[in-house]
C-alpha cells in the first residue's frame, strides 16, 4: 500500500493558484483539468520512477497546501527535500515575489535542497505577449545568482514539463553517484541528520 520506495523527496512550493497541482497532474497523469481519472485517490503525494540512463530514480513529489492560512506550516514540508520546484505564475508578478521568499527560506533552512524555478502557464503568454508580467531575463539573472535552474512550463500544453522533472532526476542521480564515489556510502548522507528535523515542528 505504502510500500513504494522513494529515492528523493521533491517539494512543490509557491503561492496559491500558480499551478503547482496542475504541474504534478500533467507530469504524472499527463492530463490537464479534465481527462480520464487514473486510479488515484489524490494528487498530494506521488511516487514517480524516472529513467536516468540505465538506472531508475524514483522521485517522491510532495504537493503542498498553498492557502495562506497554512503557509506558516510549509516549512515543515520541505524538511529533508532534495529538490524544490518553486513555482510562480508568468502572468502574476506578485507570485514571483512570493517565489523569492521561498528561495530565501530554502537557502536558510535547507542548504542541501536544490532549487528549480518554474514559471507556469507559459501558454497564456505565448498567446498574448502582453500577459507576461515576469521577464525571462530578469529571472534568469536571479537564477544564476542563486545557482538555480530555470524552466518555463505550461501544464495546459505540456510544454517543458517532462524536461523539468527529468532534470531534477538527473541532477539527483549525478549527486548520488558522486556521493557514492567519494563517501562509499550507499545511503543518503543527510538521512540521519534529517531524522531529528521533525522534532523542530513541536515546541
Amino acid at each position: 500500500m505504502s510500500g513504494q520506495r522513494v529515492d528523493a523527496k521533491v517539494v512543490m512550493l509557491g503561492k496559491e493558484y500558480v499551478g503547482k497541482t496542475s504541474l504534478v497532474e500533467r507530469y504524472v497523469h499527463n492530463r490537464f483539468l479534465v481527462g480520464p481519472y487514473q486510479n488515484t485517490i489524490g494528487a498530494a503525494f506521488v511516487a514517480k520512477p524516472i529513467h536516468v540512463g540505465e538506472k531508475i530514480v524514483t522521485l517522491g513529489i510532495w504537493d503542498t497546501a498553498g492557502s495562506e492560512r497554512y503557509e506558516a506550516m510549509s516549512r515543515i514540508y520541505y524538511r529533508g527535500a532534495k529538490a524544490a520546484i518553486v513555482c510562480y505564475d508568468l502572468t502574476d508578478s506578485s507570485s514571483f515575489q512570493r517565489a523569492k521568499f521561498w528561495v530565501k527560506e530554502l537557502q536558510n533552512c535547507e542548504e542541501h535542497c536544490k532549487i528549480y524555478l518554474c514559471g507556469t502557464k507559459s501558454d497564456l503568454v505565448e498567446d498574448d505577449r502582453s500577459m507576461r508580467k515576469v521577464d525571462f531575463h530578469d529571472v534568469q539573472d536571479y537564477a544564476d545568482e542563486i545557482k538555480a535552474q530555470l524552466f518555463e512550463t505550461s501544464s495546459k500544453s505540456g510544454h517543458n514539463v517532462d524536461e523539468l522533472f527529468q532534470k531534477v532526476a538527473e541532477d539527483y542521480d549525478q549527486l548520488y553517484s558522486f556521493q557514492q564515489m567519494t563517501e562509499e556510502k550507499g545511503v543518503d548522507l543527510c538521512q540521519k541528520k534529517n531524522s531529528t528535523f521533525y522534532a523542530c515542528c513541536h515546541h
Partner: peptide, 30 residues
C-alpha cells in the same frame, strides 16, 4: 509523533508516502 520521529527508519519517514502523511499530521498538530 516524537516516538516515530526518534525511532522510525529515516528513509521511510523522510521521502516515502508514509512520510508525506506523517508530515501532514505534524502540520495539523502545529
Amino acid at each position: 509523533i516524537q516516538y516515530i520521529t526518534r525511532f522510525c527508519n529515516p528513509s521511510r519517514l523522510m521521502t516515502g508516502e508514509d512520510g508525506y502523511y506523517f508530515t501532514n499530521l505534524c502540520c495539523a498538530v502545529a
